[in-house]
Design a protein around this nucleic acid. Structure first.
Lengths: 153, 153
DNA sequence: TTAAATGCAAAGAGTTTGCACTTAG
DNA sequence: CTAAGTGCAAACTCTTTGCATTTAA
């Protein structure tokens, strides 16, 4: 896993370079840190983590870098429960299911809900990007059992 | 429509009263205003509207009243694109589709995506509440035509 | 060298909170 | 009367922006 992330970091830095951006220690730290993040991370939290490694770094720099990486298509952002979170763009093919009761988050690959997308597109002409917003609901542990049979009452 | 909303306002006020809350001009204005709102409204926007009618009213009062109504189950909130929005709880059986290109918002009744809910529940044991988060995507106007045939390329 | 990038500090939006004052019941 | 409700002001979180300074190339 470490290797993958190191490589992802290098690729992102290379992409920045290719775009004519300069290579600063701050950017290296920010990019490295977001690659370490497990899936997605809120900007403020990322700023905290980076600051632990590069004490002097300013939140504004983190925000600017995130925005830049988003524009370049290296990162994407999604609206999860607690606000916006960033993630590696190529890792965006999964949907977040958040349990409104216990707060547990699960990810499922977009492919598994492909039929959902097809269905909404067919009936409403709308092509949903289900990765952009989380889906809240009740996980199997928190869901009352009878829901299987009687969903109404 | 006016009648319906007047009645909804009265019902909400009655519910507050039944809960032992006092009836103040501020509350009357806030409840009335949210019933006038078309579907859902952001707290800050609601505060603005109410302030136009009761000039002296304070945003804090609006936020407190919204929280109260949410706790009582009269209102619910959903995470749409621009943050949290409140709506009448009993009007929550629709899903918001937001076009990421033109910003247009459409609502579709939950019943129309019932199969989606069933599907996710069946395959993942997760009972989604699709009304709680918006679904972003491309509307029929903004969606490239070829998407109908070749969705990959 | 020199334009890009950073740090800083201020501003901003949206929301929450403590506390004294007001007012509904 | 008296506790619930309000207004006010301050604080708070997260984020953005202008500008002087630093620094990568």
């Amino acid at each position: 896993v470490t290797d993958e992330r190191t490589r992802a970091t290098d690729q992102a830095l290379a992409a920045l370079k290719a775009h004519g951006c300069r290579m600063t220690p701050q950017r290296r730290a920010i990019v490295s840190e977001i690659m370490q993040a497990d899936g997605h991370i809120a900007p403020a939290e990322l700023a905290n983590r980076v600051q632990r490694k590069i004490p002097g770094i300013n939140p504004a720099t983190v925000y600017r870098t995130l925005g830049l990486l988003d524009e370049l298509g290296i990162l994407s952002h999604a609206h999860l429960g607690g606000g916006v979170e960033y993630h590696v763009a190529r890792d965006s093919d999964h949907v977040h299911l958040i349990c409104s009761n216990c707060g547990t988050t699960r990810s499922i690959p977009t492919s598994e809900i492909e039929p959902v997308i097809t269905m909404i597109r067919a009936s409403h002409g709308f092509l949903p990007d289900l990765t952009h917003f989380a889906i809240e609901g009740l996980c199997s542990d928190c869901r009352p059992r009878q829901t299987d049979k009687a969903k109404g009452a």
